[in-house]
Design a binder for these strands. Structure first.
Lengths: 162, 162
DNA sequence: TCCGATGTTGCGAGGCATGCGCAAGAGGGA
DNA sequence: TCCCTCTTGCGCATGCCTCGCAACATCGGA
């Protein structure tokens, strides 16, 4: 799923509770499906479909990539999963949280972080005022230069006049 | 070229002056190269490599897609061309302007516009203060909902209580 | 004006991130 | 346990590029 879903988020606290939510929606709890959930619950960061299919480097059984994409898609449709895009490169998937997350990414080093949307409300407001657009950084992040790379850049500049 | 270049922009006013700049850099002025420039000068909006290769629907001779990409890349490297990414979908290329452009895009209808970076400085400042990141919307735009789609959405909501 | 060194072109093939079709297989209510 | 469906797995297709390589063109120099 390369497109952003707008289903309200469903925050599950465990694989078991997520499975429960699947059943409530008459979705089957297949091995492949459960594996995707287990990978997402086990991970501490957004995963690519490839990483999930590979079984998190052996921690979990490997599974079919196409099925992983399909399952991520259905899970996202019901609100259990969210994904965003880190510049070029594959999409990154994670469990949905009650409050949607937004992202910032560094175009130099590739670092990224999730941020609470409220921290971006002021900026969002300014953008709305100036352009009339309502910005959303949950599917496509704010791209720029992270603090570390900014520091590196200043470092470089400084040795011109030691 | 899927990556952003940081060469200072070179604003050319015509194909001839752009060609001049190529010669100054010891780059050859081949037919294919000139065609890319002609397409960009003829267009009133950012083009995809595919559109350029197709000769703008017959206005110009068609050319090889791989060469178009290579030429856009070299032109971008010397600062004559810039490109940005509209969500998924191919990159969009346009002639560089003396002042860099930044972009906003609507994730619902696909519309996008170029904006003067100064109009986003306040938002950029807020983001820097809040996250420490220096945001740049010239390669990856601000993604959100455009005024028209926002109006549509309100329209929909309103007929609940006429 | 011809020449040669080298930058470029135009294919064709390859790669990555997805998406699709379809027959085989597995959930789970009756 | 049966059977209807939902899912899986596999292979192949697609969109957007990128690469390798031989043929070819450009442009400074003889």
């Amino acid at each position: 799923m390369t497109v952003s879903h707008r289903t309200p988020p469903l925050a599950a606290s465990s694989v078991a509770s997520a499975v429960e939510l699947l059943r409530e929606r008459n979705l089957r709890v297949s091995a492949a499906r459960r594996l995707v959930l287990e990978a997402l619950f086990a991970a501490d960061k957004p995963l690519t479909a490839e990483e999930i299919a590979a079984g998190l480097e052996g921690w979990l059984p490997a599974s079919d990539l196409a099925s992983v994409y399909r399952n991520l898609d259905t899970l996202e449709e019901i609100g259990l999963v969210r994904h965003f895009h880190l510049g070029h490169g594959p999409g990154r998937y994670s469990l949905a949280t009650a409050d949607e997350r937004e992202f910032v990414a560094c175009e130099l080093c590739g670092a990224f972080e999730a941020v609470d949307p409220s921290r971006l409300d002021a900026a969002r407001e300014l953008i709305a005022k100036e352009l009339g657009y309502e910005a959303r950084f949950s599917h496509f992040p704010i791209v720029g230069t992270c603090p570390a790379c900014l520091a590196d850049r200043n470092q470089e500049g400084s040795h011109a006049h030691p």
